[in-house]
Amino acid sequence: MPEAPTLIAEAIRFDAVGKTFPTRPVPLRAVESVSFAVRRGEFLAILGPSGCGKSTLLMMAAGLETPTEGRLERGGVELVGPHRQTGVMFQDATLLPWLSVLDNVLFPATIRRIPRAQVLEAAMRLIETVGLKGFEGARPHELSGGMRQRAAICRALVLDPDLILMDEPFSALDAITRDEMGDVLLDLWQHTQKSAIFVTHSIREAVLLADRVLVMSRRPATVAEELVVPFPRPRTPALADSAEFAAVVAHLRGVIARNMA
């Protein structure tokens, strides 16, 4: 169900967005005057240390938190709540334990009251692309952590959103599975024109997957540095073994170290 093309070239725009939580005794300043935009079709990685407020940033993009300052625009319109054309992935797969993999993938359609037949084909195609073919009828507890997260990717994509938000989606996985999942995502993005915001603290993931990387400062989160990743698409996982890749990773590591000092 592709949306009619709009004249707005930005999927989402943060305009001097700030967020303060009314905690006691001292209010918690999580995000400080953040401005950036994600172009249509762009994959943006947000890189920062744990607890720097980058998740808060993503929750605001998902419409689950409201900014206390500034303005958030989604497709040129102010964002006031969860958006129908946004897919979200969290750190945990959060599959419903009593539903099969297929029913979990179709859950967004169930909630939106979209007939199953209308999205079944897309769901099956996604399940095949992420390598879960043959597990459609399995229950979440029968799957490994990586397989659950694959199902969660399918669920986020099943209604063909134009923007995907991912909050450290692989940080609960072991290192090997984690690299594998990065490759799955890279593969998926060869074929789509979707925009994405990918929050991570893995420099490798950020450089491999993203067109552009924002490095966040320590809390309260601000954009400390922006880097356009100089590698053309399509990319392959082998890119991560190249000297150029290592140079970009090293540069980013330096940026992060400077910001933490």
Binding site: A62, G63, L64, G81, P82, R84, T86, V88, F90, D92, T94, L96, W98, F107, P108, T110, I111, R112
Partner: peptide, 23 residues
């Protein structure tokens, strides 16, 4: 997490109760 998923998907109160909370 399941409740957050419901909010993201824009699930109504009844949907959340029947499809997630009750089970």
């Amino acid at each position: 997490g399941a409740l957050r998923l419901c909010r993201v998907l824009g699930a109504g109160w009844w949907q959340t109760v029947l499809r997630v909370r009750l089970p």
